[in-house]
């Protein structure tokens, strides 16, 4: 039976994302695992993560899962979530500069201090926390049934700045317009938490479960 491996590398709580996948696809197909062989054998891979990027990269390297993620990104449908999105870029400003996996060209940068709303000039707080709009920048199979501008749940202080516009699948306004979703070939990565974004979030996970990796 087709399986979904949620990579467990010690960065954050994977209970929520596993529950959400079980809800859309059935319990027996969802594996929360750190086993290289299980991840390599899975049909699709979820690369989650919360916390600090330096710890994230250190854990990936210590466990050897960095190579498993790199290989998965070349070979099968992969969904990056939150820190699992940021880790796909070349590097991050966080923790005085951290080298990342380099699957998508670009950097991860911090929201500017003294961020202001472009509409009403209200002060915007950091972390960016809550439900914000995801404006689809281009068509993608994972957008099926999801209206552009739908709200998803975010919590983060850094964001991905891909080098190439073609890799941006959606943007979100928060003082600036940032890339809230990046996509390239069989990789789709979101800054928000689909597992906490009610109907639209579950729709996205469901689309991922049925995705063949073609964009």
């Amino acid at each position: 039976m087709a399986s979904i491996a949620i990579i467990d590398y010690g960065m954050g709580n994977l209970h929520s994302i596993a529950k959400a996948f079980e809800h859309v696809t059935g319990r027996d197909r969802v594996l929360v695992t750190s086993e290289h062989a299980t991840i390599r054998a899975a049909d699709r891979v979820v690369f989650p993560g919360v916390g600090a990027i330096r710890d994230c990269m250190a854990e990936l390297q210590r466990s050897g899962l960095d190579q498993v993620v790199l290989d998965s990104a070349r070979s099968k449908p992969m969904l990056g979530v939150c820190l699992g999105m940021q880790a796909l870029l070349d590097s991050s400003e966080e923790n005085q500069g951290t080298d990342c996996l380099g699957i998508i060209p670009g950097r991860v940068v911090r929201f500017p201090a003294y961020l202001r709303d472009t509409g009403n000039d209200a002060r915007l707080k950091i972390p960016h926390m809550g439900w914000n709009q995801v404006e689809q920048a281009r068509a993608h199979p994972l957008w099926r049934g999801i209206t552009s501008g739908s709200r998803f749940y975010f919590v983060h202080s850094y964001y991905a700045a891909p080098q190439e516009d073609a890799d941006v699948a959606a943007t979100t306004p928060y003082g600036i317009e940032f890339a809230s979703v990046i996509a390239r070939d069989n990789v789709f990565a979101v800054q928000f938490h689909p597992e906490k974004s009610q109907h639209e979030g579950l729709a996205l996970l469901s689309n991922f479960v049925g995705w063949d990796g073609e964009s």
Partner: peptide, 28 residues
């Protein structure tokens, strides 16, 4: 609740040590 409600959940009250936090996060 975490098995069927897919929005953020916060739990307060009686959180006194790291083990209490871990138990609640693991519960969802």
């Amino acid at each position: 609740v975490a098995g069927e409600v897919f929005i953020p959940l916060t739990v307060g009250g009686g959180i006194r040590e790291v083990a209490d936090i871990r138990r609640m996060l693991n519960a969802g």
